[in-house]
Amino acid sequence: MYMGHYAIALGARRWLRPLPMAWLLFASIEPDLHDVLGDLIPALSIGPDTHTVAGAIGAAIVVALLAAVLFRQAALAVGSGLLVLSHVAVDYLTSRLPLWRHGPVVGLHLYAVPWADFVLEALAIAIGVSIYATSPDLRRPARAGLLGMALLMLCMQAVWNFGFGSH
């Protein structure tokens, strides 16, 4: 899931308004950022664990603790941790990932069926943007741009699924 992670962050904004959008986006893709860090510094030996159940729980706890220190509200910390967990949960729909290091590999692997992945991502975008649109702190001019943002997200996902001969 690519744009879907961001869509989940947008939807979470409805309930986690005090958190900066950058923080929500960070939490929603933290396992991928951790994955990149593991690739850049192999000595850390974290690459194989970033998308496992244990890795996601560990990352969620760290992100929640950081949020608790930075934002000083338990609900915001819990929400941040849940965003991290959501990443891996939905990745089990789009990918095939190990449950733990050297453990069984599970998942629907919708990436192998690009149209099915696109439909799932489009649904996530529609739901996330719709929920975000109901956020009481969203100003009227920003609401006007939501359709454009959703269309851009859909276009980016379409390019990933169908464009440029990438598969």
Rank of each mutant, 00 (worst) to 15 (best):
D49A: 15
A75D: 11
G148R: 10
R96V: 01
L152T: 07
P141I: 07
L37E: 05
G163K: 11
I57T: 13
P48E: 11
R72G: 06
L70I: 11
L44S: 05
V63S: 11
A67P: 03
H34R: 15
V129P: 00
L151G: 04
I61Q: 12
L70V: 11
I61P: 07
G81E: 04
Y111M: 09
G148W: 14
C155N: 11
V62T: 09
I46L: 13
W115E: 08
L40G: 14
L37P: 04
A7Q: 00
D137I: 11
W15R: 14
A27F: 10
A112N: 08
G148D: 00
H5I: 01
F26S: 08
A68V: 06
M3Q: 09
G107H: 03
Q73C: 12
R72W: 08
L151W: 03
Y2G: 13
P141G: 05
A142M: 13
P20E: 03
Y6I: 11
A64L: 09
L151T: 03
E30R: 14
A133G: 06
G148P: 03
L120H: 02
G55N: 06
M21H: 11
I127K: 04
L97N: 00
G145F: 08
H167E: 08
F162L: 07
A12R: 06
L10M: 12
P42F: 10
G79P: 02
T50W: 06
L146M: 05
L154D: 01
G81A: 08
L146E: 00
M153L: 14
G145W: 13
R13K: 14
T52L: 10
E30I: 14
V63W: 03
T94P: 00
L76E: 01
E121N: 07
G145Y: 13
D39Q: 15
F118S: 02
P136Y: 09
A77N: 02
H51F: 07
H51C: 06
A112L: 10
Y132A: 10
G4Q: 09
S95A: 05
G11R: 10
P104H: 10
M3T: 13
R13G: 08
Y92V: 02
V159N: 05
L70W: 13
G38N: 04
G79Q: 07
S86Y: 08
E121Y: 02
V36R: 14
L151H: 04
A7N: 04
S130I: 03
V78P: 00
I127T: 04
L25Q: 06
W15G: 12
L66N: 04
G165K: 13
G79A: 09
M21C: 04
A124W: 03
V53W: 09
L85I: 09
I61F: 14
A54P: 13
